[in-house]
């Protein structure tokens, strides 16, 4: 009963620079068949084979779920991250063969909603590209509010405005424009659902404001993949397989476990789906938990870790793997 998804062999058919920070990548199947149908909000995990190491990063699908000839993702360059986005920006070119996972949706629309209110920050716009296409195809009622630093970094704002006109609202930081959140939340009809995707701080702010305004938890949906953070190298003992591994500075614990030939299940690699949850047998040191899956209590207990995004500092760590 191990989880995980099927792999799909794809070819990069196009790489389009969108602005100074974002590039868009188009994939088609190498066998020429259609890609699997997906639902708006789904992501794929892209395998990046960078010489001797493999990184697997999740990216939201932004193409229309109604057209599965190709999949598109957009990647924002992060010059201080672990190098996944730099790999995509610098090493991936049209014609290159890659492997992606089948789509998985952990940020699904609630189709009961009378209205879908979407709030995007920066590159958090990508899942909404697919969700708005899906809703527009079925006469769905939605409204998108999009915050960005500058007009040029308002990735796809022009595309969205062209498609949906007044349903798209743009707020540019450098123009002093601010999302009137409280007013917006107060004026929505009963049965509205709220969706948030963007930086962690924005998600926190919107969730808190919505809770204070009386929005029930079940109406507030958010997607925040925690990107694995680089950190100090650390050593781990894998008790079941009897292996000693070292997690390097730019590697996640999950990647290091995989590099040792062990394949824990995963879906999101971003600390939200819970699949790679791993039991801690013993430890001497401190956990650096970065996931959104385990409870605060579980984080404190020292009994579990999510190896996709969390790290460790200290003398010894023994895991049940």
């Amino acid at each position: 009963m191990s989880a995980g998804t099927r792999k799909i062999d794809v070819i990069v058919t196009d790489v389009v620079p969108v602005n100074e920070l974002v590039k868009r990548f188009h994939f088609q199947r190498t066998d020429g068949q259609l890609l699997p149908t997906f639902s708006g909000g789904a992501h794929v995990v892209v395998e990046m084979r960078d010489d001797d190491r493999t990184r697997l990063n999740p990216y939201s699908l932004m193409s229309s779920p109604l057209d599965t000839r190709d999949y598109t993702i957009s990647v924002r360059r992060d010059d201080t991250g672990r190098g996944g986005s730099l790999f995509m920006h610098q090493r991936v070119n049209p014609g290159m063969r890659m492997v992606i996972s089948s789509p998985v949706n952990l940020f699904s629309l609630d189709l009961r909603a009378r209205k879908h209110l979407m709030i995007a920050g920066g590159i958090g716009i990508t899942p909404f590209m697919a969700q708005t296409s899906q809703l527009a195809g079925d006469a769905g009622n939605f409204e998108l509010h999009y915050t960005c630093r500058t007009e040029t970094l308002a990735t796809y704002a022009d595309v969205l405005k062209g498609r949906y006109g007044r349903r798209i609202h743009l707020y540019r930081d450098d123009q002093g424009e601010r999302l009137p959140l409280e007013q917006l939340l107060a004026s929505q009809p009963l049965g509205t659902h709220l969706y948030i995707c963007g930086p962690a701080g924005m998600i926190e702010w919107v969730r808190r404001t919505a809770a204070e305004a009386g929005w029930p938890d079940d109406t507030v949906h958010f997607e925040h993949f925690a990107a694995p953070q680089p950190g100090k190298p650390f050593d781990v003992t894998l008790a079941i397989s009897g292996k000693q591994i070292r997690v390097s500075e730019q590697q996640s614990l999950l990647e290091a476990i995989e590099a040792a030939g062990i394949d824990p299940p995963y879906l999101c690699r971003g600390g939200v789906c819970g699949q790679c949850e791993t039991k801690v047998i013993s430890y001497d040191g401190n956990f650096l938990h970065n996931d959104h899956w385990l409870s605060e209590e579980e984080h404190q207990s020292g009994r579990k870790i999510m190896p996709c995004v969390s790290r460790f500092e200290g003398k010894s760590l023994v895991l049940e793997r």
């Binding site: 995980g4 699997p36 789906c273």
Partner: peptide, 10 residues
Amino acid sequence: KFLTNIQQGQ
């Protein structure tokens, strides 16, 4: 827990 994690094609 198992059913909610069933993926497409599996």
